[in-house]
Write a protein that binds this DNA or RNA. Structure first.
Length: 743
DNA sequence: AGCACGCCGACT
DNA sequence: GTCGGCGTGCTC
């Protein structure tokens, strides 16, 4: 290297490479910016913000040598550098998820105004001089400031607080009784008190809390990155008091001067949750999610970096905040699919939380009533610690589960509510109790067929069938969102009135329920029926409060709100999710039916769940009916191990997409022939489409799966593989990972 | 990811 | 004859 100091910078471009820049002494008199510094750099014809990764010449993956003449950096931003543990996390997360490092690093710079110094504002406070004369208005101003001690107020706030006009303060300032100063615009976060209002814990909670606190204490006592890290799975059914337990862990972090991050899958839940934490710790913690304003993001980003933000409640993206001394990460509802980030960088936030904790020497705490298979396996094998909370009320709260064998007791053709379920529903109606009929299928009917010619409607852009949405008068593709008006006549043969809806959707089920129980108030709950999230919440609340007798719902009803009046749940088609060939179909079906069944009944009045199935002997259905979660997880884990699927390895996919089916398929075969990296490569396709070549939005796609041992260097292997058979002829190639836990 | 370069269709 | 479509390739 020649020509003065240079640095390697991670830039937000999808290239597996660092970019070298000159850091000339005239621009950087104190030496080149240190690792972690945020810098502005010229790139192509424009400029972009990146993160200094090390001295120039560092190679992160990239093969080609940097050019002889380096462009100089433009400037260093006025923000604290990303701490070393965060950089380590970014590098490992990028490698793990096959994401270019700069794209991962970008997630840590997502706060506005990082280029500018922390904003200041003018404040007035008591000055050394005495007022030239006293008036009642002036006295009120001085009283307000005296009550604040040495602190100041902005001119506007001061006038408002004192109930005077701005000119009063101006007069006092002119005679030296008030002093105008500059102060940080961002108010500090209120201090949290770990002992403000400790919860009363049951013996089981207290025991779990003790262990959770010990894990945090262990992390806090160790040097960062020196063995303090641990992961704990906190398992306990709804109502067992998991939250109180992990808040004890948060209290321990607070008491030891470490920061805590609590991750939630749903942003909508944070408001209520913040209230709860405010009650526990005496003040509300900071919140980080997509709905937080720019000013608040800037404030929180800097407060995380300074350590002033003691506790942060956040969504996925909070994982990339520059915490100064993180001691604990809690992942609430760790099994939730919402933790998967699937656009841009691909990652599973639960796994990245564990990774971040390991980089920070912090404790990770995963909480769930129904743990994901991955976490359960990790707890079983001893990689994670495990804490279990027993049901607070004993087994009586669990609803009684019974199967309705559709082969024997099924409904008439074109009907979906079997006689035993109809009878049970009628009984609830007579008793003034609510029934939930669960069917995880939106719309009126999943298939529309012409009875005259057999024509059925397919999406023009993909392989999926169009679903009739009678309420909207549309045919809709559930895969890509394509919608078209519902025709009156068959477009193929022209026959009018011969189009037949085939199969059930919730709209059709609601129709049937209304006909079956004419005296009942039937409510339909589906993501299509409400105007927006707020309207939907209001609707759910109204129904839960007794606004309906029979609730028809999709998976939407499985989560969140409680239905205290509900004593019967009917699962219309338990077999629905099991047939679609998806890797996680069984797991999802088990969790969904278990969650939705659990909605029946309450402590003093156990409910009933009737599971309609045509395959009661299916192992998954049998496990559901027996309430045998452990058995299900054990069997599912063994099956996946036999199939070599996650969580027993890493899986990546090369996705080829092109405008032409033959060319796309040929490129995929060439890639497969080029010799797979590491282990076998096959043209297996996962996902909803049944064919090896799927059509999505008019383009053809093939997924080649790559399986690798957990610790294998997948990134370079994939690069070499793709270099051996680069796609041609308009075919594009993207590498995708299945964002799941293999940690 | 942006952004420029480059080679084929319908317009003043 | 040009404006502009988006396919391809590069960014220290």
């Amino acid at each position: 290297m020649s020509g003065g100091p240079s640095v390697a910078v991670a830039l937000p471009v999808p290239v597996d490479r660092l970019f070298d820049y000159a850091a000339p002494a005239d621009l950087f008199p104190g030496g080149p910016p240190p690792p972690g510094a945020l810098v502005e750099a010229p790139l192509g014809s424009g400029r972009t913000v990146g993160v200094v990764w090390g001295p120039g010449g560092a190679s992160w993956g990239g093969a080609s040598d940097p050019p002889a003449a380096l462009k100089p950096l433009i400037r260093a931003l006025e923000a604290p550098p990303l701490p070393e543990p965060l950089r380590a996390f970014i590098a490992r997360a990028a490698d793990y998820t096959l994401t270019p490092i700069g794209m991962m690093a970008r997630l840590a710079c997502r706060a506005p105004g990082l280029g500018e110094p922390a904003p200041e504002r003018a404040v007035l406070r008591l000055g050394p001089g005495a007022p030239d004369r006293m008036t009642p208005a002036r006295a009120r101003v001085l009283d307000v400031l005296a009550a604040l001690g040495g602190a100041g107020l902005s001119p506007g706030d001061l006038a408002r607080e004192a109930g005077v006009s701005a000119s009063v303060a101006a007069g006092l300032e002119a005679c030296g009784a008030l002093l105008r100063e500059s102060a940080p615009r961002d108010a500090p976060y209120p201090a949290l008190d770990p002992e403000a209002a400790p919860a009363a814990l049951s013996p089981a909670q207290a025991a779990a809390a003790l262990a959770a606190r010990a894990a945090v204490a262990q992390a806090a006592a160790a040097q960062p990155g020196a063995g303090g890290f641990s992961t704990t799975l906190l398992q306990g059914v709804t109502g067992s008091g998991k939250t109180e337990v992990y808040l004890e862990a948060v209290a321990e972090a607070l008491a030891r001067g470490r920061q805590a991050l609590v991750m939630l899958p749903e942003i909508a839940l944070t408001a209520a949750f913040l209230d709860r934490l405010a009650a526990r710790f005496g003040a509300a913690p900071a919140a980080w999610h997509s709905g937080v304003s720019g000013a608040e993001r800037r404030r929180l980003w800097r407060a995380a970096a300074s350590g002033a933000a003691q506790v942060v409640i956040g969504a996925r993206s909070a994982l990339f905040l520059p915490f100064a001394r993180l001691g604990l990460i809690v992942v609430d509802e760790e099994h939730e699919g919402a933790y998967k980030q699937e656009d841009g960088a691909l990652y599973h936030a639960r796994d990245m939380a564990v990774l971040r904790a390991s980089c920070e020497g912090a404790a990770a705490l995963l909480a769930s009533a129904t743990p994901s298979l991955e976490s359960w396996v990790n707890a079983e094998t001893g990689r994670y610690r495990r804490l279990t909370l027993p049901d607070r009320y004993g087994p009586a709260t669990l609803p009684r589960l019974a199967a309705v064998d559709l082969r024997r007791d099924g409904p008439a053709r074109g009907r979906w509510i079997a006689p035993p379920l109809a009878k049970a529903t009628a009984e609830r109606l007579a008793a003034g109790e609510q029934t939930l009929l669960f069917l995880n299928r939106r719309g009126y009917a999943p298939l529309t067929v012409c009875r005259a010619c057999g024509h059925f409607f397919e999406c023009p852009d993909c392989d999926a069938r169009l679903v009739e949405h009678r309420l909207r008068g549309k045919l809709v593709c559930h895969q890509c969102g394509h919608a078209e008006p519902q025709p009156a006549a068959c477009p193929s043969c022209g026959a009018a009135d011969r189009l037949a809806a085939t199969g059930p959707g919730v709209e059709r089920l609601a129709e049937e329920a209304a006909a079956l129980f004419p005296q009942a108030r039937v409510a339909l709950l589906s993501s299509d029926t409400a105007a927006g999230p707020a309207a939907l919440r209001a609707q759910i609340e109204e129904i839960a409060g007794g606004g309906a007798d029979v609730i028809i719902g999709t998976q939407l009803v499985a989560k969140g709100h409680n239905f205290p009046l509900l004593t019967l749940v009917g699962v219309i088609d338990a077999d629905l999710g099991l047939a679609n060939g998806d890797l996680r179909a069984a797991e999802r079906t088990f969790q969904l039916i278990r969650q939705v069944s659990g909605r029946a009944g309450r402590a003093e009045r156990p409910g009933l769940a009737l599971i309609q199935t045509a395959a009661p002997e299916h192992p998954v259905i049998r496990a559901i009916l027996a309430g045998d979660e452990e058995g299900f997880l054990r069997r599912e884990a063994a099956e996946r191990q036999a199939a070599g699927s996650p969580p027993f390895g890493r899986m990546a996919a090369a996705i080829l997409s092109g405008p032409d089916e033959a060319k796309t398929w040929e490129a995929a075969r060439a890639l497969a022939r080029a010799g797979g990296p590491l282990e076998a490569v096959g043209a297996r396709l996962f996902g909803p489409a049944p064919a090896p070549v799927a059509r999505i939005r008019g383009r053809f796609r093939v997924r080649l799966l790559v399986k690798a041992p957990r610790t294998a260097p997948l990134q370079p292997a994939l690069r070499a593989w793709i270099a051996a058979a680069p796609p041609r002829g308009g075919v594009r190639l993207a590498v995708d990972v299945d964002p799941q836990s293999f940690l």
